[in-house]
């Protein structure tokens, strides 16, 4: 094999590796699901076992747990324009958030472990009804384009 050809092959290999790096790295860039827009009293984000403050402007990612204290409440706007808010003594897990801004296809799963939640659905539901789901300890709510509130009384479910 000629030297030129081998160089060419190395270049191709390098390009391929660089491309692979870019592909592997991109989910980290796309991790933002939403932002905290309202934060009152005690509000915390739990991410990878770490506790983070949740001021206005804080990023919410899939797999985050959001907790509010007795005086706390939090409002989050997601990238598909869905809104979620939680009242005092609430625990919310953003289990999955996937949204394609071109096709509007996506999946949005949230679990309310305790407390209260208000939901305003966004573009994911407009594109695919019930692609947004709220799970409670005893039920699942499939969202078909709407606004609603949910309450889970922890003193009873625990």
């Amino acid at each position: 094999m000629s030297k030129v050809l081998m160089l060419h092959r190395d270049f191709l290999m390098l390009s391929f590796l660089l491309l692979l790096c870019a592909v592997v790295a991109s989910p980290a860039l796309a991790a933002e699901a939403g932002r905290v827009k309202v934060s009152k009293g005690e509000v915390q984000i739990e991410r990878d076992g770490k506790r983070l403050p949740a001021p206005v402007g804080a990023t919410i990612q899939a797999r985050d747990t959001v907790k509010t204290g007795p005086d706390g409440s939090v409002g989050i706007t997601f990238q598909d324009s869905s809104l979620l808010s939680a009242g005092p003594n609430s625990e919310l897990v953003i289990e999955r958030f996937v949204f394609d801004s071109t096709t509007h296809k996506g999946e949005f799963d949230t679990a309310l472990k305790k407390g209260t939640l208000a939901v305003v659905s966004g573009k994911i539901v407009k594109q695919s009804p019930e692609a947004m789901r709220i799970r409670t300890p005893a039920a699942i709510m499939g969202v078909r384009g709407t606004e609603f509130v949910v309450k889970v009384d922890e003193s009873v479910t625990k």
Binding site: V149, T157, K158
Partner: peptide, 14 residues
């Protein structure tokens, strides 16, 4: 969890 729950869902007008 094998225990009772007390959960409520209320639909709101948009």
């Amino acid at each position: 969890n094998g225990q009772a729950a007390n959960e409520l869902v209320v639909l709101l007008p948009k």
